[in-house]
Design a protein around this nucleic acid. Structure first.
Length: 588
RNA sequence: GGACCGGUAGUUCAAUUGGCUAGAGCACCGCCCUGUCACGGCGGAAGUUGCGGGUUCGAGCCCCGUCCGGUCCGCCA
């Protein structure tokens, strides 16, 4: 027998019992005779006491190295007064070993499993030995937590009559969205399958088929470059779709899932319940982004008419001026303002970051000199700035003046520690514009998803300025991360053709690209809506994890390689021949 | 594709201004130690400072090139 108990369960209740444990030697402390072992498995750690008086072949114990896998037989005993370890769940007891045997030994490790207080090893190395890194507590806890979340999601969805349906992995390349991963067809020379970027079209077809409520924790493959919150290659979504619901009814249906995951599974607090619904325009104006961190306020305000009273040229020549009041920001150093904060503003597409500080009831430094004393009093009044604040200004178009301050707001939230790690601020962002102006090509283009239903339907498309049309589309966000977009889908062929026409596509274009969808809708489609929140991002929000690679068991690196197995890899000539492929030789 | 930051024993980090025979912790090897929990003590092995060139009496450090890695932009729900 390998074990009667795991390494995380023994308490004083079991004292006196004979037990067998198996696991990894996490630590060993050798006192030249008496040896302590910290035996580890995924459930926890139990201290083993090896005394030569109780063990016949003690050389085995003395030969143990870190991460050897062993089986221990022994007796559970209460630890004596003063030797308990309160940091372990099993710290009240220890196992007095009578027999120890090695199941597997190990080469010297490329890095230690034990969490020492030091820097992190190079990620390349950790990914190459991912099976070792996964033994570490932090990563193991993330993966175990992810499993708990996914289990809860499935229970929730099942209890609401959603049906789990698998959709094809080998599917067809679709022209919109991201770059596809392609799979060559052996049977059809020159033809390719594509791996799904998302089961978007299949799930809509399931609604046409009458399944009414569908979900799937679906793999999605996209050939794009990574970011800290975006996995290269592949990731998972809670893909779901419902029929016969308005978007508001859908919100009400799904909201308890976010509340339960936050409170019951992660043990954190929900900032606001029911979740706020924030219209896109209002969101941009207040927070300078469509995915604000709502754990703190600090809203942006518009001050154009005031700004134009002074003699600051950038204000007088711009369209809109907005201000972000950061309480306590007067303490920011010149170095940080010109460095970190200006850098943040530039990330928000600003040229620079005008500012002034509120000190002793008036404004000073920065651009204060361009305004009269009265004008400075006026702005303090208008925006309600208290002494010790700093005012950051955003200038430019309606959008640019806001986004410049959105990134600054987020940075200020970090620096002032306003983002409570034990709180999750969920929100629905609603009323996205159906179209936006494409500066580069000087034409109207889809703002987000072309398959969203425009609010007002055909009539809106026929009569309104395209840029004024609102799509019945929404995002679910949390703590500054966008988890998913979603929409009431455009399921009416006539409205679909018209919607594409507004963006400059002919009927023939639409038929060529999306003919199969339109054809399906022509046989009747129920009104339907849904979304597809990213699983990894949900876990990131619930664990405060900044890197998506820390919530994936076997992630790819920045170049979309998996260093442990060595993907992608070359294949044999034979395989290529079967697939009718030839590799073009790189130029020397 | 572009910008920025980085690369020193297996690993995490040091190495004042360009002055070394490149150090320390952990891991590894050997010895000592019966109540530790980051155990402790003594000793040992371990390095082409990513690579190539240059400046210099002298380069881990300065310069040029190159490779590799990370973050961000582009791209992407």
């Amino acid at each position: 027998m390998f074990r009667t108990h795991t390494c995380g369960v023994l308490t004083k209740e079991e004292s006196g019992k004979s037990v067998t444990l198996s696991g990894w030697v996490h630590k060993h402390r050798n006192f030249g005779g008496l040896v302590f072992l910290d035996l580890r498995d995924r459930y926890g750690i139990t201290q083993i006491v090896c005394n030569p008086e109780n063990i016949t072949d003690f050389t085995v114990v003395e030969s143990l190295k870190y991460e050897h896998i062993i089986t221990v037989e022994g007796t559970v005993e209460l630890r004596t007064e003063g030797t308990q370890n309160t940091t372990l769940s099993t710290g009240e007891v220890e196992v007095i070993a009578t027999h120890v045997s090695i199941l597997s030994n190990t080469k010297p490790l490329p890095f230690e499993i034990f969490d020492a207080k030091k820097g992190e090893e190079d990620e390349e190395l950790r990914l190459k030995y991912r099976f070792l890194e996964l033994r570490r507590k932090k990563l193991r806890d993330n993966i175990l937590f992810r499993a708990k979340v996914e289990t809860h999601i499935r229970q929730f969805m099942n209890s609401r009559d959603f049906i789990d349906i698998a959709t094809p992995i080998l599917t067809v390349s679709s022209p919109e969205g991201s770059r596809d991963y392609l799979v060559p067809s052996r049977i059809h020379p020159g033809k390719f399958y594509a791996l799904p970027q998302a089961p978007q079209q299949y799930k809509q077809l399931l609604m046409v088929a009458g399944f009414d409520r569908y979900y799937q924790i679906a793999p999605c493959m996209r050939d794009e470059d990574p970011r800290a919150d975006r996995a290269p290659g592949e990731f998972y979504q809670l893909d779901c779709e419902t029929s016969f619901m308005t978007s508001e009814e859908f919100f009400t249906l799904m909201e308890p899932l976010w509340i339960e995951l936050t409170e019951k599974v992660a043990g954190k607090k929900v900032q606001q319940n029911p979740l706020p619904r924030i219209p896109f325009r209002e969101c941009m104006e207040k927070y300078g982004t469509d995915k604000p961190d709502l754990r703190f306020g600090m809203e942006i305000q518009e001050v154009t008419s005031w700004a134009k009273k002074g003699s600051f040229e950038l204000f007088n020549t711009t369209e809109v001026v907005r201000v972000l009041v950061v309480p306590g920001g007067a303490d920011f150093s010149r170095k940080d303002i010109d460095g970190k904060f200006t850098q943040a503003a530039k990330q928000g597409n600003a040229q620079g970051l005008p500012w002034m500080k509120v000190v002793d009831g008036t404004c000073e430094s920065g651009i204060a000199k361009f305004f009269s004393h009265e004008q400075l009093q006026e702005i303090i009044q208008q925006v309600g700035a208290e002494d010790g604040s700093i005012l950051f200004f955003g200038i430019g178009s309606w959008e640019k003046s806001a986004t410049a301050l959105g990134t600054v707001r987020s940075l200020a939230g970090d620096i002032l520690e306003l983002k409570d790690p034990n709180v999750v601020a969920w929100a629905w962002i609603v009323d996205f514009p159906m179209y936006e102006w494409d500066e580069e090509n000087e034409k109207v283009d889809f703002g987000h998803n072309p398959f969203s239903m425009p609010k007002g339907g055909l009539e809106a498309l026929n009569t309104k300025d395209p840029l004024d049309i609102i799509a019945d589309q929404y995002d679910i966000i949390a703590n500054g991360l966008e988890l998913s977009s979603g929409a009431v889908r455009n399921k009416d062929p006539e409205i679909m053709y018209k919607a594409f026409e507004v963006a400059g596509y002919t009927k023939a274009d639409v038929d060529e690209k999306f003919g199969h969808m339109i054809q399906a809708f022509e046989f009747g489609a129920p009104p339907h809506c849904g979304f597809a929140p990213g699983i990894e991002r949900i876990i990131m929000v619930l664990t405060n994890e900044a890197s998506i690679r820390n919530v994936v068991a076997f992630p790819k690196n920045q170049k979309a390689e998996e260093p442990m197995m060595g993907s992608p890899s070359e294949v044999t000539e034979e395989q290529l021949k079967e697939l009718h492929l030839q590799i073009k030789k790189e130029k020397e």
